[in-house]
């Protein structure tokens, strides 16, 4: 049940900026109307963020990861269910790794 000081500080930092995003966003955007470009930029952030996140490991992952990625996107489109899409992707990558021996 140990909590190390460096880990505690990292977690507190994460918690602080997260609450600032949740509550501060409401407090600030209610008081002042953000300029257009800020609002447009914020709308573009999530998609670009997740693309920037998945691109390097996907490229490095090779054909197995690419096939898994295609399965995830297809299942997400078909079912609209995050959990099923994730599980299908893992199953595909696992199955291909097993087939490749």
């Amino acid at each position: 049940m140990e909590v190390r000081l460096d880990v505690l500080l990292a977690i507190l930092g994460m918690a602080l900026v997260t609450y600032a995003s949740r509550a501060g966003g409401y407090a600030v955007l209610r008081a002042v109307r953000a300029p257009d470009w800020v609002q447009v930029l914020l709308r573009h952030l999530p998609g670009c963020l997740f693309m920037a996140y998945v691109a390097p490991p996907l490229l490095a992952g090779g054909p197995g990861a690419w096939a898994g990625a295609a399965v995830v996107v297809a299942v997400q489109l078909a079912t609209r269910n995050l959990g099923i899409a994730i599980l299908s992707g893992i199953a595909a990558v696992w199955g291909l790794a097993w087939l490749a021996g």
Binding site: G13, V17, T18, S21, R22, G25, Y26, L29, L42, L49
Partner: peptide, 22 residues
């Protein structure tokens, strides 16, 4: 623990929640 890197990465990911409250 990467205190600064984890905090910055979290902010970048979660700033998307700022417009939700509004």
């Amino acid at each position: 623990a990467p205190i600064l890197a984890a905090t910055i990465a979290t902010l970048v990911v979660n700033i998307r929640m700022a417009p939700m409250g509004a």
